[in-house]
């Protein structure tokens, strides 16, 4: 029997988690498309970061003292857009122009277009290196800001991630945290079949990170883990968040077919609506 508290599939979502998913839904409804599964697995990770962890000023997104957060798995941007809009970086009505030809919210996030987006991502395996550069920049400037890079477990197939991991450890970048959305599904199918990444925590440890694993949908557990950062001084940290792809949307949960969906039909949109409540 799975432990109900620690099983990311069965942990219930609170009102805020459902409300954020409804914002994602607004964007999905407007565009009729989007990376559904990769966004839904991210919601609690980003929610806790932007609610409780990151130093930020939504009305001053370029404030130099802010903590940097890079969504390296850029295809999960619907979750980031929902959280940024909710925190007031831009009006929520922008979500209704997701992927619109004159909108700012594209299918992958762009720095300079979207307030609060630190790096244009979408090509996988780029974010951690950029994060190392930002971490070194903060050190050179003697600034205390931290850098968080959110990666997908499928993204970890990219060799450049591990090049960056080696460098982060070499530089003893304790200001840098790699957060893995470990939803165990990549586009084609299970990570364990496409390109097994196990033992994931040991991989990061052997690359010089201090690693903790956490239920990526348990808001309290996430908050507790992130508040302990950095786990040790002079070493980078990694938080492996065990999640469910499509979490909160029953037809999408653990379903590779819901990685990206275009032309969502009324039945599918109805299923999402039923799961998340609201209007």
């Amino acid at each position: 029997m799975p432990n109900l508290i620690h099983d990311p599939l069965t942990i219930p979502l609170d009102a805020r988690s459902k409300a954020l998913r409804r914002l994602i839904m607004d964007a999905l409804l407007a565009a009729g498309r989007g990376h559904v599964g990769p966004a839904m697995s991210l919601v609690e990770i980003l929610r806790v970061l932007y609610d409780d962890v990151l130093k930020l000023r939504p009305k001053e997104p370029d404030w130099p003292g802010r903590d940097r957060c890079i969504l390296s798995k850029g295809h999960g941007c619907l979750a980031l857009y929902a959280v940024l809009a909710d925190r007031g970086f831009f009006p929520k009505r922008e979500l209704q122009r997701f992927c619109a030809d004159d909108g700012i919210l594209g299918g992958h996030p762009e720095r300079g277009l979207v307030p609060g987006v630190e790096a244009s991502t979408g090509a996988l395996g780029h974010g951690l290196s950029i994060g190392v550069g930002m971490g070194l920049a903060a050190r050179l400037r003697k600034r205390a800001n931290r850098v968080f890079v959110v990666l997908g477990d499928g993204e970890l197939n990219e060799g450049s991630v591990w090049e960056a991991a080696m460098s982060a450890a070499k530089h003893g970048l304790s200001s840098l945290t790699a957060i893995v959305d470990n939803n165990r599904l990549q586009s084609y199918g299970p990570v364990a079949e496409v390109m097994p990444m196990a033992p994931l925590a040991d991989k990061f440890r052997s690359f010089g990170f201090v690693v903790e694993e956490v239920n990526g949908h348990d808001v309290d557990a996430l908050r507790a883990a992130f508040r302990r950062l950095p786990f040790v001084r002079e070493q980078p940290s990694a938080v492996i968040c065990n999640t469910v792809k499509g979490k909160g949307v029953p037809p999408a949960e653990h379903n590779a077919a819901w990685h990206h969906r275009a032309r969502l039909n009324d039945e599918e949109l109805g299923a999402i609506r039923a799961a998340l409540g609201g209007k």
Partner: peptide, 16 residues
């Protein structure tokens, strides 16, 4: 590790 080197340079440049 050229791919990483370029990404790192980008991170530095983003910070001025």
């Amino acid at each position: 590790a050229e791919a990483h080197v370029i990404g790192l340079a980008a991170g530095l440049a983003m910070e001025g």
